[in-house]
Design a protein around this nucleic acid. Structure first.
Length: 242
DNA sequence: CCGGTTGTTCAGCG
DNA sequence: GCGCTGAACAACCG
């Protein structure tokens, strides 16, 4: 389930364990997860689609990939990749990628690239876009170096909102469109978060998985576009190709 | 019930 | 070393 907003939600739900000591560790991960035993969690952070468990001497990065999930104070049949027990509950992570990060997180992460971080920086994003003049719009919206946290749904919805065709190259887009892009992508991510909390995310999809354009009533196109070859929904009539 | 996918990395090749 | 392709991972929905 995981685009950036879903990870922000995970962080919010995990808040109850911040500052708590990990009493029990288990899971089928091949990483050395036992080093978490007895450790007190300093804080949880997110960067794009990364969920970060920050401990005094190291950080554990959890990436839910395509199929990952988590449960708090609940279990299911599958065996967790990682299970952490505290004195006030437990959290299980399933089918995710775990990696320990040593040293200073700020040396690893460019927080200004995270579309949901307070450090998100439009100017930095614009500079990165301009450094990739030949890239397609549908590809840059999945580029985690530029729009960390954006995924395939956000990509489709942002292009539709801005009425920009997925096959626009960055160099062809007018400055105004680029300025809209770096503003609208975080905006949509926060709408996504709000709708997901309300359980009404899919109801608000205007492009993703849609068969008809809500603006002009013509059929939506579905194609696997760009270097990323990800499923792209768009309206040929409404989304402008410069 | 089989096909498809809200994601990423890596091996292999030219 | 590069860019591209396909595989691998592996769960859940319709």
């Amino acid at each position: 389930m995981p685009e950036g907003p879903s990870i922000v939600l995970l962080k919010e739900e995990a808040q109850i364990f911040e500052g708590r000591k990990i009493l029990q560790v288990s899971g089928n991960s091949k990483e050395a997860i036992q080093r978490l035993q007895g450790v007190t969690i300093k804080s949880f952070k997110t960067w794009g689609k990364h969920f970060l468990i920050c401990c005094p001497d190291f950080t554990l990065r959890i990436h839910l990939m395509l199929f990952g999930s988590y449960l708090i104070n609940e279990t299911k049949a599958a065996s967790p990749r990682l299970s952490l027990t505290f004195n006030n509950g437990y959290i299980n992570f399933y089918t995710c990628s775990l990696k320990f990060i040593e040293g200073d997180l700020n040396a690893v992460y460019d927080w200004s690239a995270d579309i949901m971080h307070k450090a998100w920086n439009e100017k930095n994003a614009l500079a990165k876009l301009k450094a990739r003049p030949g890239s397609l719009l549908c590809d840059v919206l999945l580029d985690q170096d530029i729009f960390a946290g954006s995924g395939n749904i956000i990509k489709n919805e942002v292009m539709y909102r801005l009425q920009l065709h997925p096959l626009n190259t960055i160099s062809e887009l007018p400055q105004k469109a680029l300025a809209q892009l770096v503003k609208a992508t975080p905006e949509y991510a926060f709408d996504f978060l709000r709708w997901k909390k309300a359980g009404s995310l899919k109801k608000h999809w205007l492009a993703h998985t849609q068969s008809t354009c809500s603006r002009c009533d013509l059929p939506m196109q579905k194609a696997y576009l760009g270097k990323t070859k990800r499923r792209t929904y768009y309206c040929d009539n409404c989304q402008k190709l410069y």
